[in-house]
Computed example of a mutant assay.
Amino acid sequence: MANEFAKMRRLRVVPVVAAMVVGVVALSCVTFATPGFMGWVEDPSEQPWHWLLGGLSLAVPMVSPILLAVLASRQVDIEHQGNGWLLSQTSGLTPGYLCRVKFVATGAVVVAATLAQSGLVFALGKLVGITVAFPAGQWFSYTASIVAVNLVLFALHLLLSARIGNQLVGLGVGVLGVFVTVSSTGMPTWLAHFFPPWGYYALATPVDAREGGVVALDPPHLSVITLGVAAGVLFMFITRRFDRQEA
């Protein structure tokens, strides 16, 4: 684990994570430019927190898929370039075990970045003067759902990058994922279920803008939990298979 964190420093992981956080926060705060928003900060009927939460739920799926692909690629490409798989295996660390260690180490960074995004958007909402009641339940449940979806997507890209030496493939999937994610926002809920994990960004969306204003939704949190459990089992199964392969 310590070795993986040491690799992260050399791989410039911090700038990639910082770009993800800054990108999400910046796009979320476009909400501040909504006509009349600054006049709603003290009006409970206008639900300014829900507008800001809506901005966050639009920003996350536009930024995360590509940068998570970049993050996974950087973590694995060093093993392909330096024959690290073989070196680790001679030290008793199988490829599958190394993938699991990478997931835990870098996954902790992904979780921290996702929590930072949510916290910074909340802090900026306070900074601009929003004084109405904070919808803690919706905000925290959305943050937890996005943590789960981000981890699932990161695991997918980690396996893809480990299996395919050409890292352009993983990055191409990341770009394609943005289009799938954006498209899934207009899909019926039942259809979005068939595009994991990208469609689950849309499923986790807690609010929606309508003609009369912003309305709260009832996201299928059980679906996100099921995705996380299924992805965890599948990740363990695939990396166990990696354990039986020669580097």
Rank of each mutant, 00 (worst) to 15 (best):
Ala105His: 04
Ala2Leu: 15
Val63Met: 01
Leu58Cys: 05
Pro197Phe: 05
Ala59Met: 09
Leu191Trp: 12
Arg244His: 12
Thr185Asp: 14
Trp190Asp: 14
Arg240Met: 06
Ile238Gly: 04
Leu71Tyr: 02
Leu222Arg: 10
Gln89Arg: 13
Ala72Thr: 08
Val178Asp: 03
Ser183Trp: 14
Phe122Lys: 08
Ile164Met: 12
Ser57Glu: 12
Phe154Asn: 00
His193Glu: 14
Asp243Phe: 07
Phe195Asn: 08
Met20Leu: 15
Ser64Lys: 06
Arg240Ala: 13
Leu52Met: 08
Val16Pro: 05
Ala204Phe: 00
Val22Thr: 15
Gly36Pro: 03
Ser118Tyr: 14
Pro65Cys: 08
Val111Tyr: 01
Tyr200Cys: 03
Gly170Ala: 06
Val149Gln: 01
Val22Tyr: 09
Val17His: 10
Ala136Ile: 10
Met20Lys: 09
Ser183Glu: 14
Val76Cys: 04
Cys29His: 05
Ser64Met: 15
Trp85Asn: 02
Met62Cys: 12
Leu120Lys: 11
Cys99His: 04
Gly23Ser: 09
Val24Asp: 02
Phe179Lys: 10
Val63Cys: 06
Leu160Thr: 12
Asp208Lys: 05
Ser145Leu: 01
Asp208Asn: 10
Val173Trp: 07
Gly82Tyr: 12
Glu79His: 12
Phe194Pro: 13
Glu211Arg: 09
Trp51Gln: 15
Gly137Leu: 10
Ser88Val: 00
Ala72Arg: 05
Thr189Lys: 06
His193Cys: 09
Ala144Thr: 00
Arg74Cys: 07
Glu42His: 08
Arg241Gly: 06
Ala6Ile: 06
Pro61Tyr: 03
Ala105Gly: 00
Leu27Thr: 04
Val16Asn: 05
Gly212Tyr: 02
Ser45His: 07
Lys126Gln: 15
Ala72Cys: 12
Phe32Cys: 03
Gln245Pro: 01
Val121Phe: 07
Ala2Val: 13
His157Thr: 06
Lys7Ser: 00
Asp208Cys: 01
Lys102Leu: 02
Leu159Val: 13
Val24Asn: 03
Gly129Glu: 04
His50Gly: 15
Asn83His: 13
Thr31Ala: 14
Leu120Thr: 13
Gln245Ser: 13
Gly213Val: 11
Pro44Asp: 03
Gly172Glu: 12
Val173Gln: 02
Asp43Leu: 08
Gly23Ala: 12
Val60Leu: 14
Gln89His: 09
Ser145Val: 00
Ser45Phe: 03
Tyr97Ile: 06
Leu176Thr: 11
Pro206Asp: 05
Ala26Gln: 06
Leu98Ser: 08
Pro206Val: 06
Thr94Leu: 06
Gly82Pro: 02
Arg100Lys: 04
Leu56Ile: 01
Cys99Asp: 10
Val182Ser: 12
Ala69Gly: 11
Glu46Gln: 15
Thr226Asp: 09
Glu79Ser: 01
